[in-house]
Design a protein around this nucleic acid. Structure first.
Length: 550
RNA sequence: GGCGGAGUAGCUCAGUGGUAGAGCAGGGGACUCAUAAGCCCUUGGUCGCAAGUUCGACUCUUGCCUCCGCUACCA
């Protein structure tokens, strides 16, 4: 368990900035943002890093086709990412770009350290080269009538390349990796991903290439063939030295974002990362290559890598930009609102495996969970408190059934959230929503209100009862809003306002009291307050027959 | 080819050696505080196929089929 005030550093993979982002790309960023917000609210010293991967021959080519500089090309794409993320309420502590100057220095420093440690050497590389993904091994390409292609990009022709490259001695780290996996059973999660990676390690590791001869759009390789620095007398980097190839560029962003190498104090504070959230397609690079690269530089491996699955469309095909079968996050936000989009995406898509989604499943989930169950619960609670108690906020009771249910719910919710089972955490919290809705029908506050009108001794006991029931319901709404705030950061403060409470956290979840204290039953039991008029939080949507992208 | 996972109600999934569960969707009902929401009840399943072990298997074993993941290789 995370102790109060601990620091928590988490990252997402950086997205390839060659296009507009799809919801399937921002999915992990939304999930990581939720986890980051939870830790900020806990009071942890939290740092959340996400960003974009911007170097590659492919991007340089695309820019050239459009007749613009690579930098202008990626600036535009990054703008699209940032604007979609803003719409989704995503709040990184730093948005890192591999074109950032400090990242340039970090990547070069990592290469120098690997070299100094004897872990990189010159070799020749020959093989099929995919402009999108780099060199592909024989098992990764497919022969077709139109020639050899990479299955992920059927329309992109492969090239057969031979070139002199620097290699990283991954093979030297096999034993240490096996030991690390054994000593840190939670290093890779979920477990079946860990087993897959362990299987990959055990069958023997091969060195991998970390440079490209083709200069241009990339970070200059800092070492010349003679082993000296490739920095020339005129201050330029020798183009003959080539550029750093993808993994010694992209992966490095995680330490750049922690202060490496410019700010040793910051780096000592933030590294090793507590959590990398990544997609299953890059698990090997994060759980095998990356630890070895860090060790080579004398640094620690990250503490935990969470591997999530993909969003699939009906029929099981992976959502992807190249297939054109993806959701535009901006459309989802337009339809469901910012919090609606966050909630539905994370409730509907399991964070530990692939999930089929459709526009209809999103709308159904929104209506069932947000409009009908939770939104309506808040609305009916606030409405009754206004109508029966003149808006004077009733206090929660001590021994009510909801309190009992809540005290069972919170620890489960917390462990699922911190264990990255975000969909399960929401399901747990929503069971409590259901319990609150059932309490309304069991207690029938409207009948209590009638008994009060009739007066007499029955009226007096009804009055106490009404106040206790509505107090428990108000408390339930407060607790759900606070606990669910990482998922619903824009709505949670509105709910507290309707309940007559101030919202003590900043927009990113920082600055307030430790949330676990706030989440104890009746944490603000003695405080008087005036409730606001009810205002629907999640307007019900009509189900459109089929708006699922083809 | 090797290793691993999965095949359970229309959909998404949970589950256990003793004659199957949840949520959503569908149907019905009583109510009315509420976003015609909520609540209660309910229709749906030969638990992939076949054989075996067992008093008894959806749950164990074997074979097969289908799908998926990791990985290898042939051509």
């Amino acid at each position: 368990m995370i102790e109060k005030g601990r620091r928590f550093y988490l990252t997402t993979a950086i997205a390839y900035a060659n296009n507009q982002p799809g919801l399937h790309t921002l999915y992990e960023v939304i999930g990581a943002d939720v986890i980051a917000r939870w830790h900020r609210m806990l009071g942890d010293d939290t740092r959340f890093l996400t960003g974009t991967d911007e170097h590659s021959v492919n991007i340089a080519q695309r820019a050239a086709e459009e007749g613009i500089e690579p930098r202008a090309f990626v600036d535009e794409k990054v703008g699209l990412f940032r604007s979609s993320e803003r719409l989704l309420g995503i709040n990184p502590d730093r948005f890192i770009r591999t074109t950032d100057p400090d990242h340039f220095r970090a990547a070069q420093e990592m290469v120098r350290r690997a070299y100094a440690n004897g872990d990189i050497y010159l070799g020749a590389y020959e093989g099929w080269y995919c402009p999108n993904e780099g060199f592909r091994s024989a098992s990764e390409v497919v022969e077709t009538a139109r020639g050899t292609i990479c299955p992920n990009h059927p329309d992109v022709p492969l090239q057969w390349l031979t070139e002199r490259n620097w290699f990283f001695r991954l093979s030297a780290y096999q034993a240490r990796l096996e030991r690390h996996f054994a000593e840190h059973p939670d290093f890779v999660q979920p477990d079946y991903r860990r087993n897959e990676m362990l299987g990959f390690i055990r069958q023997g590791l091969e060195d991998f290439s970390i440079s490209r001869a083709s200069g241009g759009w990339g970070i200059p390789f800092p070492i010349a063939e003679n082993g000296e620095s490739s920095l020339m007398a005129d201050g330029r980097w020798d183009p003959e030295a080539g550029t750093i190839y993808v993994w010694y560029d992209a992966l490095i962003n995680y330490i750049t974002g922690a202060g490496f190498p410019d700010d040793p104090d910051a780096f000592a504070h933030w590294w090793p990362a507590d959590l990398h959230v990544i997609g299953k397609d890059i698990a090997r690079f994060h759980t095998v290559y990356w630890p070895a690269m860090l060790w080579s530089a004398g640094l620690e491996a990250p503490r935990r890598v969470w591997v999530h699955g993909w969003l699939l469309v009906k029929g099981g095909e992976r959502m992807s930009k190249s297939r054109g079968n993806f959701f535009d996050p901006n459309d989802v936000v337009t339809a469901l609102g910012s919090d609606g989009a966050r909630y539905v995406t994370l409730a509907e898509v399991a964070f530990d495996r692939d999930t089929e989604v459709s526009w209809e499943s999103f709308i159904r989930r929104y209506n069932a969970d947000l409009a009908n169950d939770f939104g309506n619960l808040v609305n009916r609670t606030v409405s009754m408190a206004n109508r029966y108690l003149a808006g004077e906020r009733p206090g929660a009771s001590d021994g009510g059934s909801l309190r009992f249910v809540w005290e069972k719910t919170l620890p489960v919710y917390r462990s699922q959230l911190e264990g990255c089972l975000l969909h399960a955490a929401l399901a747990t919290l929503w069971e409590f929503v259901g319990a609150a809705n059932r309490l309304v029908d069991a207690e029938k506050p409207w009948e209590l209100a009638k008994a009060i009108k009739l007066g007499g001794p029955d009226g007096e006991s009804a009055s106490l009862r009404l106040s206790a029931v509505l107090g428990d319901l108000v408390e339930a709404c407060r607790l759900i809003a606070l606990a669910g705030a990482p998922f619903l950061p824009a709505t949670a403060p509105r709910i507290l306002a309707q309940l007559g409470y101030a919202w003590p956290y900043a927009n990113d979840g920082n600055g307030g009291p430790p949330v676990l204290g706030e989440l104890s039953w009746a944490a603000h039991g003695g405080e008087a307050g005036q409730m606001e008029q009810p205002e629907p939080l999640f307007p019900r949507l009509s189900v459109e027959p089929d708006a699922t992208p083809a």
